[in-house]
Design a protein around this nucleic acid. Structure first.
Lengths: 197, 197
DNA sequence: TGTGTTGGTCAACGCTTGTTGGCAACGTAC
DNA sequence: GTACGTTGCCAACAAGCGTTGACCAACACA
C-alpha cells in the first residue's frame, strides 16, 4: 500500500530496485492473458513464469484485475494517413493491420480477453477511440462522419482478424497477405472515402 | 452410464420421464455459457437455474465439456439464396444476419465462448463450414472460389457483430439497421459476385 | 406383489484459486 | 551501528470448483 508515491506528486522516475521484477511480472502476465484468457491465466502461473512468489504480484498490483489493467496496453502503431495517397488509404490500412496482427500475438490474445471480461471490452473500446478513430478522422473531410467510418473500418479489420487468427477459419487462414489486401482494401477504401449511402 | 441406449440401435424416440429436466439443463446451460463464458458458467449455477442438483448434470452429460457440446447448437437459419435476385444477395444476407443476431442473444454468447475455449472455436468453424459456406457455394459460379468468398463474407459479418453486440463500440451500436445494410451490403455483394481481384 | 430401472437428493472428496500476514535478508541514511 | 523501508519467500486461509458415490422415492413391468 505504501508502494506507489501519492498520485499527482509523482516523482519524475526514481528507479526502484524492484523494477526488473515488476517488468518480469508484466511480461509474464501479458503472455499468459493473451494465450489463455483472463480466467485460465492464474496468478500462480504468472508468478512462476516471472520467477517470483505469487504474493509479490499482489503486493505490486493489488489484485488480479489490477494486474490485468496494468498489463494490457495495446499499441496499434497507427501510421499517419495524411501522408498517404487518398486513393490508397484502404490498401495502406489493411497492410498495416496485417503487419501488426502478425507480429504481435498478444493482440490476438487481447481480443480474446476483450470479448470475455468487461475490463477487456473497455480496453478495446479505448483502443478504438484513442488510436483508430483519430487517425481516420484526420483524413475524413466531414468530421461528423468520422466516427461511423472508423467503426466500419474497424468492423472489417477485426472481423478478418477473428477469422484468420482467433477462430482460424481455414479459407481465411489460407489467404496470402496480397490476397487479403486485394479483397479488403477496396472495402476499407469505400468505408473511408465513399459518399455516405 | 447405462443411460443412453447403445448408439446405432437407437430406438426411434421413446420419450423419457427426464426429458423435461434434460431440456431445463440445456436451456440454463445455454444462457449461462452465453452470458458468462465457459469458465465463469459453473455447473452449480446451471443446476440451480434448472432447479435440480448439480450431480444430475454430470449424470446426463458426463462432464462440463460434454454439457457445453450438447448445449451449443447454433442455427443461423440461413435462407435459400438461389431464390434471391443476384444483385441483391448482399442486402439479403446482411439483413438476415442483423435479424438473427438481434433476436438471439445466445449467438453473441457463443462467439464469446468460441473465442475463449477450443471446443467453442471448433463449433464456430463447423457453423461456418456446414451452414454459411454451402449456402454461399450454391450461388457461386466458380466452385473453387466459394470457400474464400464465404470466408470474406463471414469476416465482415462477424466483425460487425463484434463491434455492435460484443465489444459494443459506440458508433457501431448507434447505427440503424438500414444504415448497416446500406454500408455493408455492397461489401458483401462484392465478396460474393465480383471478379476475383 | 415383488423386482429392477429410472429420476433425484445429499454429503463429501480432492483440488485449485485469489488473497493474506508473518518473517527473514538486504540496502541505505543518519 | 543501528534503525528503517524495501524486496522477497513461506505457509496458510476461505471459498469455490468439478466430480463421485451412497442412498431414497417413484415408477414399470412380471
Amino acid at each position: 500500500m505504501s508502494d506507489r508515491p501519492p498520485p499527482g506528486t509523482e516523482t519524475p522516475a526514481r528507479p526502484r530496485r524492484s523494477d526488473a521484477t515488476r517488468a518480469a511480472i508484466l511480461n509474464a502476465a501479458r503472455d499468459r492473458f493473451a494465450a489463455e484468457g483472463y480466467e485460465r491465466a492464474t496468478i500462480r502461473a504468472i508468478a512462476r513464469d516471472a520467477g517470483i512468489d505469487p504474493s509479490m504480484v499482489m503486493r505490486y498490483y493489488g489484485n488480479k484485475e489490477g494486474l490485468f489493467v496494468a498489463a494490457t496496453d495495446i499499441d496499434l502503431r497507427m501510421p499517419d494517413l495524411t501522408a498517404v495517397d487518398r486513393d490508397r488509404l484502404g490498401e495502406r490500412l489493411v497492410r498495416h493491420f496485417l503487419d501488426v496482427w502478425e507480429h504481435d500475438e498478444r493482440l490476438t490474445g487481447m481480443v480474446r480477453v476483450g470479448v470475455t471480461v468487461d475490463a477487456g471490452a473497455e480496453r478495446l473500446r479505448s483502443v478504438f477511440r484513442d488510436q483508430l478513430a483519430p487517425v481516420i478522422a484526420a483524413v475524413c473531410p466531414v468530421p461528423d462522419e468520422a466516427a461511423v467510418r472508423a467503426a466500419l473500418v474497424g468492423s472489417q479489420i477485426i472481423g478478418m482478424a477473428m477469422a484468420r487468427y482467433v477462430v482460424r477459419i481455414p479459407p481465411a487462414t489460407g489467404l496470402s497477405h496480397d490476397e487479403v489486401v486485394a479483397w479488403l482494401a477496396p472495402t476499407v477504401q469505400r468505408y473511408l472515402t465513399a459518399e455516405r449511402p
